[in-house]
Write a protein that binds this DNA or RNA. Structure first.
Length: 369
DNA sequence: TAGATTTGACCAGA
DNA sequence: TCTGGTCAAATCTA
């Protein structure tokens, strides 16, 4: 549920910021459209995540509420977002789903799109659909797929191509779908905060694309059992299906730290020393509304906006050092990085930042002006 | 030259 | 027997 809550708040915040800064953004249609795309991606992923989640849990009432996720954001936007915290109790997902003011992200986004004008060609906006390619650059929202594990621990096929599966060895299994890179090496699997070593590739029956097998780089030294499989979707080659098996144990060190795999939060906005599994030299960590949020999700989400804004603002960022950039919170010319502040403000409730969420866009507006 | 990737062969579950 | 998963030698690359 943590991804759900994260996406929910993040999308609402972005929408609110766009609405509040339409005067500034009016002269920057590129930023506007990309921002809108990002928001729609967030909300669409949220919708899919919720739908799938409820299908798994079989809670029909929640499903109905999710389907009704409707006019709420529009209504909420009309209030100027001022009633956000009153309208949404993010500590209580039931309250969020049941609250008419927070229902209807899709309609809200459609409304935004109407405000912002015609979408770019090539920009896939499938607000009511499930097929959103949310973010350019290959960092996509995380969409959890249902995985069926029967009582014996073996995996039941959840797709037609999974006819036989080896018995699970008791490891936790997690299946997600992420957007494939749209530039550069298109075969590179999406970054997820860990380093992986490819140990095999295999053509899979009835699949157009081969499946790649990865294990944790540190399997040798830390006996880390984590593995993942990456395969491009048959029907949508721009999406990867990534199957994670087993959790990382290689992060265990002399410094106690909750495992990322278990989605446990870390202390307030501190810079962590590099860890064996992390691809980053440092990791931006947050606490946010006391929620359990996987840092990888947080970083990916925050990076989307970072990359888009950075490019639009004429930066030379490549987005290759996501966590490092966010952690530094600086442009190369040592300017403050608005999105880092934004992420910091958002995910830390604004308590630890001198820049409030309301000021982020206005400060950016200064740059644009 | 060490580490990563590729790829054919082998293993094991269904 | 078929197929997915893994191994390990060969190859590549920084």
């Amino acid at each position: 549920m943590e991804e759900t809550k994260l996406l929910m708040l993040y999308g609402c915040k972005l929408a609110k910021n766009i609405e509040e800064n339409l005067p500034n953004l009016a002269n920057r249609p590129g930023i506007l459209l990309k921002s809108c795309d990002g928001i729609i991606g967030v909300f669409s992923n949220l919708k899919e995540l919720l739908s799938r989640g409820q299908m798994i849990s079989g809670q029909s009432q929640e499903l109905q509420q999710t389907d009704n996720i409707g006019a709420g954001i529009q209504e909420w936007l009309k209030t100027g977002g001022k009633s956000y915290h009153q309208a949404t109790d993010l500590h209580n997902p039931q309250a969020v789903l049941g609250n008419p003011r927070t229902r209807g992200f899709s309609e809200g986004c459609a409304n935004l799109k109407g405000v912002l004008g015609q979408q770019e060609s090539g920009l896939e906006l499938m607000i009511s659909g499930m097929n959103v390619k949310s973010f350019a650059g290959g960092i996509g929202g995380e969409i959890i797929q249902p995985v069926d594990v029967d009582a014996s621990g073996s995996i039941r096929a959840s797709s037609s191509q999974c006819k036989r599966r080896r018995k699970d060895d008791g490891h936790k299994i997690r299946v997600i779908r992420v957007a494939a890179p749209q530039m550069g090496n298109l075969d590179l699997p999406p970054e997820d905060g860990y380093t992986w070593k490819k140990y095999g590739q295999k053509e899979i029956l009835e699949s157009r694309y081969p499946r790649s097998y990865y294990c944790c780089t540190h399997r040798k030294f830390y006996n880390c059992p984590a593995k993942k499989q990456v395969q491009r979707l048959n029907h949508d080659h721009s999406m990867f299906e990534v199957t994670y098996r087993g959790g990382h144990t290689c992060h265990i060190s002399s410094t106690p730290r909750p495992p990322v795999e278990q989605g446990m939060i870390r202390p307030i906005a501190t810079m962590q020393p590099p860890l064996p599994c992390s691809t980053s030299s440092s990791v931006l960590t947050t606490h946010w509304l006391s929620m359990d949020i996987k840092p990888s999700v947080l970083e990916s989400t925050a990076t989307i906006f970072n990359k888009q804004m950075f490019q639009e603002l004429g930066g030379e960022g490549t987005g290759s050092s996501t966590a490092g950039t966010l952690a530094s919170g600086r442009f190369p010319d040592n300017q403050a990085l608005p999105v880092a502040d934004m992420a910091n403000t958002m995910f830390n409730g604004g308590s630890s930042s001198s820049i409030g969420i309301e000021n982020i866009f206005s400060s950016m507006g200064d740059k644009w002006n």
